[in-house]
Nucleic acid binder design. Structure first.
Lengths: 142, 142
DNA sequence: CGCACCACTTGTATAATGCAAGCACCGTGG
DNA sequence: CCACGGTGCTTGCATTATACAAGTGGTGCG
């Protein structure tokens, strides 16, 4: 129950929220994979996340204002949507992915994909971010 | 002792190495603070890292090729230097810091600093990266 | 009713992290 | 010679995070 940041450094502030093995992967699947439901995320994450961890991470991200939670009654699945802070993480995800593709082991296809995404430059990311904002406004498959 | 990646995704590859509460902060202090010794890092990290954790992270980063370790005998302090993969993390650190400054609580001064660094654009980062390469070549205060 | 789906929760085991202390080595000063 | 402080760690132990399997209560549908 200790919510006090360890320091005022902006990098540390980001790391305290996102510095774990799952948060960024969840956001990756929501941004690039379009996932928005619990089950969708759980089965979609190729790395295999446990349900209690997913529950915890989603709650943290909602509390931090990166996601919004939409419970639609009558047995319809709850959906999570990207809030603006999460959308603005796109450059971080792209830069980090490009770095990983260049300096960590991966497959040629995924490497090419990540490098193309980075090579597209900020204009390309802005387009992706605009699409994500659009998707949020339209409100998903209601 | 399980070194197999959970997936081939480049973002996951980066997260598996850097997705914890300390690795990026250590690299931050080496990149922006110029730290290169164990004690220097331990006392320099405003967040307060334990020595066993610092030992472990330095070993991991060396094993991953982000740092090189230089033991200079005769009681002289061991130094760690940034290898090329770590230098190429600069854009990630800057982007992440700018995001943290914008979307997480911090102080006005640090926020301004992080945003200026980002506003400087890739040319500015390239200059910082060039300085870091220079520092490595010159070999620190021998 | 029976069954499947939904988002979780619970229980328990293992791994990661945090904290305080200690260790062997060295160069220096007295 | 001998404390002394600095070096990069290691060790032991408590706390916390993560992993895995199972269960829970709610709903929709045939």
């Amino acid at each position: 129950m200790d919510n006090a940041p360890r320091s005022d450094c902006p990098i540390n502030a980001a790391v305290e929220l996102l510095g774990d093995k799952w948060s960024l992967l969840i956001l990756r699947d929501m941004v690039f994979g379009g996932s928005c439901q619990f089950r969708q995320l759980q089965s979609g994450l190729k790395e295999g996340i446990a349900s209690n961890i997913l529950t915890d991470r989603l709650r943290r991200l909602v509390d931090a204002g990166l996601l919004t939670k939409h419970e639609r009654g009558r047995g319809r699945p709850t959906t999570y949507r990207l809030a603006e802070p999460a959308i603005q993480l796109v450059p971080v995800l792209v830069t980090l992915g490009a770095w990983g593709a260049r300096h960590r082991p991966t497959t040629p296809e995924l490497r090419r994909g990540a490098e193309e995404m980075e090579a597209g430059g900020p204009e390309h990311w802005q387009q992706l971010m605009a699409e994500l904002r659009e998707r949020v406004r339209n409100g998903e498959p209601e």
